[in-house]
Amino acid sequence: MKMSRRILFNVIAWGLVLAVAFPLFWMIVTSLKPGFELFRRPPTMLPETVTFEHYWRLLSETPFLLYFRNSVILASATTVVVVGIGTLGAYSLVRFRYRGRESLAFLVLFTYLLPSVVLIIPLYLFMVKLGLSNTITSLVIAYTTFALPYALWLLRSFMAGIPEDLESAALVDGASRLGAFRDVILPQLLPGIISTALFTFILAWNEYLYALVLVNSDGARPLTTGVMTMLISAFNIEWSLLMAASVMMSVPLIIVFAFLQSYLTRGFGAGAVKG
């Protein structure tokens, strides 16, 4: 009874893993197949001839690298801004006592109650007024608006887990408030900062809708919309190139994930056990 139950669980678990992993596998396989093998019936599971021509074409003949650069700048800048403001904001929410502190923290979450589509047009008009339309900066600001509330809450729960005595001790030991923050709070907050940074980076790296609306010149376009406009037209979809681009888009995330994965899972557990 117990044995059969375990087998059943295993089958279900592996089934789920396969369902999630298959598209990724198919993406890699398709990007390595030569054009004539793409639509063969029955399809080949593994490419008969492996080719890197799609990758080469993408790098040499298209503005892929430009988009890639834009995405790196965009995601990094958003991460820096969100983590910077989020850390200081979380510190304020946890350590200082002022009127409306709790309601402020909840109000911040209200931004998630609005569907993001509703916010696009106002935000677009806003950017035009500010003279920022069609710039990477406009996307950094837009992404900050929806990554920051979550970052604030995540960091807040991490911050609440740092005993106040530590900071008091640093103050008595002669540190200024800022010094205590740097010497004692920041090192303790590092796991929280890393998981917040990962979350923000992934969000900014993968975002599509805002990038589509706010930016329409190649100079500022990130990978998501860039690849789409470049390879998908009304009459034709360049499947091989699309898949090659997708692989190269995923690689940075996979690398970052592989190194920082333990921090990320710790981040999702924060606040569950306080203190």
Binding site: D165, L166, S168, A169, D173, G174, A175, P187
Partner: peptide, 20 residues
């Protein structure tokens, strides 16, 4: 006068040692 300039030292109940 801020704590650091009072020429005092304090031992906390939780010890408050810097973990890192």
């Amino acid at each position: 006068v801020p704590p650091g300039k009072r020429d005092i030292a304090m031992v906390f109940q939780s010890y408050a040692l810097y973990p890192h």
